Amino acid sequence: MTDVTVVVGAGAIGQAIARRVSSGRHVVLADLKRDNAEQAARVLELAGFTTTATTVDVSDRDSVRALIRTVTGLGDVKLLVQAAGVSPSQAPVATILKVDLYGTAMLLEEFGEVIASGGSAIVISSQSGHRLPALTPGQDRQLATAPAEELLDLPFVREIDDTLLAYQISKRCNSLRVRGQAPRWGRRGARVNAISPGIVITPLAWDELNGERAAFYRDMLARSPAGRAGTPDEIAALAALIAGPEGGYITGSDFLIDGGATANFFHGPDAQGT
């Protein structure tokens, strides 16, 4: 059987990870917009990869199940990269929660039924989840383990009325969700982890750097220990370690890779965190 890499959200980070780890595999690129998936597939095809482009709506379980039928028809799913999402500058609260919070949780539930032995998942979360004001242990546990269909009805989720907070809660859930799913994936001989990038230069990042919070994000970069934004290839290098054989003991973990921006937020000379 052919080994398959599935990239959900065919943007720069998903493409970089697929390119780094998918030699000899069939790469499925799935996106809400077919044009995005087809463009990404063409780029990888020109680099020598075998690809399939398709569509998926990560906020719709039937759409995700249709994607799973497609990819399992091609071979064994060895890697899922969940890179689909919307930012606080791109969508209202309800959409952010449905896509970033519910969508990721549901995707892990569904792919957890078909992931091949020896396979893994990488969820692209965000540094924003690490800046969220402290939740209670009970709230953290609910984000980690509540059935996906119940997440949007949690009282502390329902009361969110700010797009940044919706994004932070969603990304906090992403980081916790891999912990909650790790035992279940382990029973299939598979692993599941998250990466929480800081500002990485992608089209989504350009939206933020030129949007209503542009000054905040540009100041964050200037004050971070690294003094710059990251690149998709740096995220892919970390993903290759986590998902590859050298990362075989890693599961249920979230990796913050933000040039020290979060460290500066909490512990820098003008610390804002508590």
Rank of each mutant, 00 (worst) to 15 (best):
V8Q: 09
A18P: 09
G24N: 04
A37S: 12
Q15G: 11
L32H: 10
A16N: 06
G24A: 04
A30I: 09
V27H: 13
A18E: 09
N36D: 14
D35T: 08
N36T: 10
D31N: 14
V7F: 00
A10Q: 04
G9R: 07
L29T: 04
A12S: 04
D31T: 12
V43S: 04
A30G: 09
A10V: 03
V6H: 07
R19T: 06
L46K: 03
R20P: 15
L44D: 03
E38S: 14
I13G: 11
R34H: 00
R34G: 01
L29I: 06
L32Y: 15
E45W: 03
A12L: 02
A37Q: 06
V28I: 12
A40E: 00
F49L: 11
F49A: 13
Q15Y: 01
F49V: 04
Q15T: 09
L32I: 13
A40S: 00
V7P: 00
V8E: 08
R34N: 02
Q39G: 02
V43N: 02
K33L: 12
E45K: 05
Q39D: 05
G11H: 07
R20M: 13
A16S: 14
V7R: 01
I17C: 09
A16Y: 09
L32P: 14
L46N: 10
G9D: 03
N36V: 11
K33H: 14
R25I: 04
E38W: 11
A40D: 00
G9F: 12
R19F: 01
H26E: 13
Q15E: 10
A30Q: 10
L29A: 09
A37D: 07
G11C: 03
V43R: 01
V28M: 12
L32K: 14
V43Q: 01
L46F: 02
D31R: 04
Q15A: 08
A40V: 00
G11A: 08
E45M: 13
